[in-house]
Design a protein around this nucleic acid. Structure first.
Length: 562
RNA sequence: CGGGGCGUGGCGCAGUCUGGUAGCGCACUCGGCUGGGGGCCGAGCGGUCGCUGGUUCAAAUCCAGCCGCCCCGACCA
C-alpha cells in the first residue's frame, strides 16, 4: 500500500521559525500540512489520511442517528444572506459573478439548506428531518493563527435538524449530542461539553465541545458538575472584607490617584472594597453606568446578552461631558441609569465622587443610588460554581458546537409546514458543526511528546510504521519485504520505510509521525529471530518471532497481545 | 482594527547599525566509506537579498511607499 520511498511525506528536522503551537509545529514537521497563505493550508497525503479517518467516523455516527449526507455549494447567491441579515458579516467573503450579480462564499450552510427545505417541505408528515454534509467553509478571519487551528478555509461537518415543535427540536438536539459524545470518544480526545454563547448564529441555546490544551483559544470555567465557556460562565465570587458602614457617603481627598490600586493602597483597603464605574453607550439609550467590584472584570458578552442590545465604551469626551473626570467616576448622584453587577453585595464601598481628586467611602449600593442588578462579571479561578465546586479556568480548542436555532432562519426564509389541521407553522431548526481539522490538531496537542506526534489509533494515518534498517541490496531486507506483504495481505494499514537512509533518520521519522505501532526489522533482531515492535504511546516493546510477526502485529493492534 | 516582529538558495540563519566580491549549517546531486538513533570524506548544483521608486560612482545594507507572513490583543459558530 505505502512504501515511504514512493510517498510524498516531506519531514523536517526543524519546525518553521514562526510556529508556536505544538500541533502547528508537528503537523508541518511530520509532513502532514504545508502553508499556502495566511490561514490557507494544503493537506499532504499523510495529513489527509488522518482527516479522512475523522471524516469516516463523522459519517458513521451521523448515519447512525438517521442524519442523511448531501452536498451544497460553497459559491452562493447573496440573496438568501441578505434575507437573513447575515450579508453584513465582515467574515463573509463577498464577490460578483461576470454579470455583476452579488455572490458569497458560504461560511456555513443554514441559508442554503433552509432555502431548499422551504421549497420542498410542506407537511408535518415530512418532519422531523436531519441532513448534513462535509463541505468547505470560507471565512475572512481577521487573524488566522496556529496552523490549522484557525484558518480562512476549512472543511466542516455541518448538520441541520428540522422539527415541528420545541419537543422535536429538543429530541434532535439530544440525538446529535449523543452522537457527538461517541464521535469525540472514538477520536481519542479528552473533551467536555460546555454551555456557550449563541454568538452571531442567533437562536435559543447552544453548547460547545471543548478539547483542553494550551494552544486553545477559548477559556473554559470548570468545576465538579459544571463546565461553561468563560464567555457565559456564572459563579459566586470570592468574598472580600469591607470597612464598617457609614450613615452616608463621605468624601475623601485622593489627589492624583485615579486607579483602583492607587486609591486602594492609599486607603489601606482591598481592591474588592471599591466600585469600578464603567460608562457605556447603549444603542438608543445613551450613557449607562456599569458597576463592578474593583477586583472584578467586565464580561462584555454577558452584558450584551443581559441587555439584549449592543453597546460600546463611552469616549473620554462623552464621559467628561456627562459625568465627571475619568479616574474619579462613581454611581452616587450620577443621574444616569445604572447596571450593578450581582457580585456587588455589602454596604460599604469606595468609589469616585465625579469630581477631581475626590472619592466617596461608605457607599451602600442599595441605599445610595438606584440600579438594575445583572450578572456581568467574568468568572475567575477560585470562584464557587453553581453546585458548590471551585472554578478552574482552562484553555481549550473548540472542536464542535450545537445550536438550537429555533426559527432564526426558517422564518425569514419562509420554511414552514402545515399541521394536521391545515395550520401553518415555522419549522424549528438546529445546527450542529464539527471541524475535522481541529479534531486532528487537538489530538496532536493532547497526545504529543518531545519526540513527536502520538496518534490515537482511530485517526492515525497508518496503524503500523514498518522500518527496514537494511539497505535495498542486503539480505535482511527480504525479511522486511516479506513482513510488509504479509501485513498488507492481512489488511493492516502499514507505512513501509524502505528508504536508503540511515537508521537514525528512519527511527526519528517514525517517532515524529507517531503511528501507534513501530515495527523494526534489522540485523540485530533477526540474529535472534525476531522483529521489534514498539508502541508509540507507552513505549512498550515486544519481540515478535519472525515467522509469526504479521499475526502478532495484528494482535498488538487489536490489543489482544500479552 | 491597535501593538510588536520578520522577509537573504528548499529549511534554519549570519551579513544591514558603519554602502564596495552574497556567506554558514542542514537538505539536494555525484563518488567513496559507514550501517541500531539524523554518521564520515571529497566534489558539485542552487539566491532578481519580498516588490516598486529614490539617494549614490556603487544598495541586501540608506530613504519612501507598498506587499506578504508571524506573534500579542481586539474580534470570532
Amino acid at each position: 500500500m505505502t512504501r515511504l520511498s514512493q510517498t510524498f511525506l516531506p519531514t523536517l528536522k526543524d519546525a518553521p521559525s514562526d510556529a508556536e503551537a505544538v500541533s502547528h509545529k508537528l503537523m508541518v514537521r511530520a509532513g502532514l500540512i504545508r502553508q499556502l497563505g495566511a490561514g490557507l493550508w494544503t493537506y499532504l497525503p499523510a495529513g489527509w489520511r488522518a482527516v479522512r479517518k475523522v471524516e469516516a467516523i463523522l459519517r458513521e455516527e451521523m448515519e447512525s442517528i438517521g442524519c442523511q449526507e448531501m452536498l451544497m455549494p460553497i459559491l452562493q447567491p447573496a440573496e438568501p444572506w441578505q434575507t437573513t441579515g447575515r450579508y453584513g458579516i465582515d467574515e463573509l467573503f463577498k464577490l460578483e459573478d461576470r454579470k455583476g450579480a452579488p455572490m458569497v462564499l458560504a461560511m456555513t450552510h443554514e441559508e442554503c439548506l433552509t432555502y431548499h427545505v422551504a421549497r420542498e417541505v410542506r407537511s408535518y408528515r415530512d418532519l422531523p428531518l436531519m441532513l448534513y454534509h462535509l463541505q468547505t467553509k470560507e471565512r475572512d478571519e481577521p487573524r488566522p493563527r496556529a496552523g490549522v487551528l484557525r484558518t480562512r478555509e476549512f472543511t466542516m461537518k455541518d448538520a441541520y435538524s428540522f422539527d415541528r415543535d420545541e419537543e422535536g427540536l429538543a429530541r434532535s438536539y439530544e440525538l446529535q449530542s449523543e452522537a457527538y459524545t461517541r464521535i469525540f470518544d472514538r477520536c481519542g480526545l479528552r473533551w467536555y461539553r460546555v454551555e456557550s454563547d449563541v454568538g452571531m448564529m442567533g437562536g435559543s441555546g447552544a453548547h460547545e465541545y471543548m478539547a483542553p490544551c494550551p494552544a486553545g483559544e477559548n477559556e473554559v470555567a470548570l468545576a465538579t458538575g459544571y463546565a461553561a465557556n468563560v464567555e457565559v460562565a456564572t459563579a459566586d465570587s470570592q468574598p472580600v472584607e469591607l470597612p464598617p458602614p457609614l450613615d452616608a457617603p463621605d468624601e475623601v481627598p485622593t489627589p492624583g490617584l485615579t486607579k483602583v490600586e492607587d486609591v486602594s493602597g492609599h486607603l489601606g483597603l482591598p481592591a474588592g472594597a471599591f466600585i469600578k464605574t464603567l460608562p457605556i453607550i447603549v444603542e438608543g439609550r445613551g450613557m449607562v453606568l456599569v458597576l463592578l467590584r474593583g477586583d472584578h472584570q467586565l464580561n462584555e458578552i454577558k452584558l450584551r446578552n443581559g441587555m439584549n442590545t449592543d453597546f460600546r465604551q463611552a469616549s473620554t469626551e462623552e464621559i467628561e461631558a456627562q459625568l465627571g473626570p475619568v479616574g474619579y467616576l462613581g454611581p452616587v448622584e450620577s443621574g444616569l441609569p445604572i447596571i450593578k453587577d450581582a457580585a456587588l453585595t455589602g454596604n460599604s464601598y469606595v468609589s469616585g465622587a465625579n469630581k477631581p481628586d475626590t472619592h466617596l467611602r461608605g457607599i451602600d449600593p442599595t441605599r445610595d443610588f438606584e440600579s438594575y442588578e445583572m450578572d456581568v462579571r467574568t468568572v475567575e479561578a477560585g470562584d464557587t460554581a453553581p453546585g458548590g465546586g471551585k472554578i478552574e479556568i482552562e484553555a481549550a480548542i473548540e472542536i464542535g458546537n450545537i445550536f438550537k436555532l429555533g426559527t432564526r432562519y426558517s422564518e425569514p426564509l419562509g420554511a414552514s409546514y402545515l399541521d394536521g389541521e391545515g395550520k401553518e407553522h415555522p419549522i424549528l431548526m438546529g445546527s450542529y458543526g464539527i471541524g475535522p481539522a481541529r479534531i486532528v490538531a487537538a489530538a496532536i496537542e493532547q497526545g504529543a511528546d518531545e519526540n513527536g506526534i502520538v496518534w490515537p489509533a482511530s485517526i492515525a494515518p497508518w496503524q503500523v510504521h514498518l522500518v527496514s534498517l537494511a539497505q535495498a541490496d542486503e539480505p535482511e531486507r527480504e525479511a522486511a519485504d516479506r513482513l510488509y506483504r504479509d501485513l498488507r495481505d492481512d489488511g493492516v494499514e502499514v507505512l513501509y520505510d524502505d528508504r536508503d537512509a540511515g537508521p537514525g533518520e528512519k527511527l526519528t521519522d517514525a517517532e515524529l509521525l507517531g503511528c501507534p505501532l513501530r515495527v523494526v526489522v534489522g540485523r540485530r533482531g533477526l540474529a535472534e529471530g525476531v522483529v521489534e515492535a514498539t508502541e508509540r504511546g507507552s513505549g512498550a516493546e515486544h519481540k515478535l518471532p519472525v515467522e509469526e510477526a504479521a499475526a502478532r502485529t495484528s494482535q498488538l493492534l487489536s490489543g489482544s497481545d500479552d
